[in-house]
Write a protein that binds this DNA or RNA. Structure first.
Lengths: 219, 219
DNA sequence: CATTTATTCAATTATTCAATAGAGTATTTG
DNA sequence: CAAATACTCTATTGAATAATTGAATAAATG
């Protein structure tokens, strides 16, 4: 094989890889990936949750789909998108690299005045006598949650505070390290005299680490 | 926190993530990443190996650098770039997703008429009585290689065929699953009556899997 | 079978990106 | 300190992308 043929082959091959890179090159598309990492959704739901127009969300979803990052299925008039195999690992690698290498990310997270007592993956195993709250929207809890976690969407938390025990520490988790639901939950709980911390990670990270995931509404 | 404030925060955060996506959105930059996954290099070396002008290569390297994917150090008039922590995992996730999800990639690989007997990571452990050849350029071998592998750059292989034993199977590896050096080596070896196969993966994949890596020129 | 709902397509505009050429900046060497 | 080497910056060009709007599909409903 001549040099020019090799060059042509490499150009073609890496251009295919770059299709995935291009799909990752937009903030809205990354936000869509993060949402879809939690649970599948229709175009309209995704548009609403990302504050995009439906047409625009649809376009972005198609870019992700063509790059092999999403799978879709039709159900009546709805089209549900979900992550393709391997897409979460890619998003996770990107997210983690950004956290390590980009100073502005740290700066943004610092602006949340987040508690630095967040619990890492391995630490959670060792904790006993805690109440674990999944503060994501219900549909994400149903799609999968950490065993023993109670569904307590952040919007319902304040109303349902009285059912929580003050004798135990309360641990909240949400979508991932950059999701603020758990921070809001911890702040609210503490302001009402509870002892509370957040997990530093989300359900998909838990799942990727090989831990068991429970689906549906727990008995 | 109001909805509009949350939206602003998310837009800023995901825009930072998208900086990395944008860095991955070009075939030349991905090729640079793959090369740097093997060993650090100067701008000029990278330009030559990717058939880019030096100015253009420099620009692309700076894009990668600003996105946190590369680190650089000066040595005299040379600037050496190397992968930042976590950058190889990101490139590997992207590459593996492309292999699984993009049909054109499979099509391109098929055009190589590659032998499908390639040896996977776990299989290599079980093989005995083989001669393992690292057919990448010498500098990459020096930067790190699989223990017991012999450096045999593909351009030297034909000249040095006589030192190889016919009694053992010969196994060649190179940069990764899409590198053709090992395919060329296998083809050449077989045409000279050797029994030969390639590894399906490269040195960085071996290293990422937690196996030991030897540096320098083996004693 | 017309209407409604959910999604996609097509056309437009503003913005961003890739590549090039040539000038400019560090650093080493004679 | 002048020349050589290695790299970076700037300006320009043409190409690609993002968001918007309104029209066009596909499937379900009355």
């Amino acid at each position: 094989m001549k040099h020019s043929q090799k060059r042509q082959f490499k150009d073609k091959l890496y251009s295919q890889f770059a299709r995935i890179g291009k799909a990752l090159a937009n903030n809205h598309r990354l936000e869509l990936l993060e949402l879809l990492g939690q649970a599948e959704r229709s175009v309209e739901m995704l548009a609403r949750e990302t504050d995009l127009s439906v047409a625009n969300a649809s376009q972005h979803l198609q870019v992700l789909h063509k790059a092999g990052l999403l799978q879709s299925r039709r159900e009546g008039t709805f089209i549900f998108y979900q992550l393709a195999d391997g897409a979460f690992l890619l998003w996770q690698s990107l997210r983690d690299l950004a956290q390590k290498q980009i100073a502005e990310v740290e700066h943004l997270v610092a602006s949340l005045k987040r508690d630095d007592q967040a619990i890492e993956l391995k630490e959670l195993q060792l904790l006993e006598d805690i109440v674990l709250l999944d503060v994501r929207p219900m549909n994400e809890y149903v799609a999968g949650h950490i065993p023993k976690a109670i569904s307590m969407p952040i919007i319902e938390l304040e109303m349902r505070l009285e059912i929580l025990p003050k004798a135990f520490e309360i641990v909240a988790y949400c979508r991932g390290p950059f999701c603020v639901f758990a921070d809001e939950a911890v702040a609210l709980l503490r302001s009402h005299g509870f002892q509370a911390r957040r997990l530093a990670f989300g359900l998909p990270d838990w799942q990727m680490a090989g831990y068991p995931v429970q689906k549906g509404v727990g008995a």
